[in-house]
């Protein structure tokens, strides 16, 4: 093999590369800024659960056994759906767009450490999802008599369900972003399974009205378990009787959501493409 000698004055030899942590945070700030400036994405992400909550809360005002209202049930379910919308759906579509509009290619050509891109996406999703939850809770409390838990316990449950749920769904969204053939088809390809999942995961239709095989399918995915966790927080012990197993099964919720975080991470690491299909 021939020796290829090159000598170029290194302009930057003395300067240190910026820290990956700082770049991850700076990506997060930028992603969040871009998200809120993209009016379509904001409307797409926020409006759906909010409109549905207002709608369902007004249509169904009956009480369930245990002094729980149907609207309370929907608040908890739509928080789950809202969180998954802000993470899975939002990332699945936005990364498909990033892949096509040149964002990923440009970033891959810079010294940005690649994990910083994902850290940015994940953190910005956490911000968006937290905001969505706050809005839904405000609607629930102000319009539909949702009682917020007074003790610390349920809030701790809320925090871990939220963090695990957002992380798992976000990673699943990153992996799913490779499925659509183009940015144009991304909204349909990503939103379709998500809508189906909402119908079979107890967001709109209570489990006691679903056939068992559908519940089994739903049990594979994180949404059912997220909603179950949120119901435990906002409906309390009185609502446990409405569950199929008469219990919120928080241990299984934690297990399934954690499995999705790990599974999602593996899926991302093995399938993520920095190139668009057009780039070969």
């Amino acid at each position: 093999m021939t020796d290829l000698t090159t000598s170029v004055p290194a302009r930057t030899a003395s300067a240190k590369l910026p820290s990956p942590v700082r770049l991850g945070l700076s990506r997060a700030a930028l992603e969040t800024k871009m998200f809120f400036r993209e009016k379509d994405a904001v409307v797409f992400t926020f409006s759906f659960p909010i409109i549905l909550l207002a709608l369902f809360g007004s249509i169904f005002s009956d009480d369930l056994p245990g002094g729980i209202t149907v609207s309370q049930l929907y608040t908890a379910g739509l928080i789950g759906a809202g969180v998954m919308g802000a993470s899975f759906q939002n990332l699945g579509i936005s990364i498909a767009v990033d892949r096509e509009d040149g964002t990923l290619k440009r970033l891959a050509g810079t010294p940005l450490p690649r994990p910083a891109y994902f850290v940015g996406k994940m953190l910005s999703v956490l911000v968006v999802a937290a905001l969505e939850v706050a809005i839904l809770l405000a609607i629930g409390v102000l319009m539909y008599d949702l009682k917020l838990p007074a003790e610390v316990g349920p809030w701790l449950t809320f925090v871990w369900v939220f963090v695990l749920g957002v992380s798992g769904s976000a990673l699943l969204g990153i992996a799913a972003s490779g499925v659509p053939r183009s940015a144009r088809s991304a909204a349909a390809v990503i939103a379709m399974p998500f809508v189906v999942l909402q119908f079979i995961s107890g967001v709109y239709i209570p489990f006691n009205q679903l056939p068992e095989w559908l519940i089994r399918i739903a049990s594979v995915f994180p949404l059912k378990w997220m909603c179950q966790g949120f119901r435990s927080v906002f409906l309390g012990d009185a609502g446990a009787i409405q569950e199929i197993t008469k219990s919120y099964e928080l241990g299984r919720v934690a297990l399934v959501l954690a499995a999705w975080v790990i599974g999602g991470l593996v899926l991302c690491l093995t399938t993520f493409r920095w190139k668009g299909r057009r780039d070969g």
Binding site: T12, A15, K105
Partner: peptide, 23 residues
């Protein structure tokens, strides 16, 4: 061909990308 960063201003984008580099 690139159509990224459409919602950022020119200055914001340049400042952000500059932060990736050591000098």
């Amino acid at each position: 061909t690139a159509e990224d960063a459409a919602e950022l201003t020119v200055r914001e984008t340049l400042r952000h990308f500059a932060s990736y580099y050591p000098a």
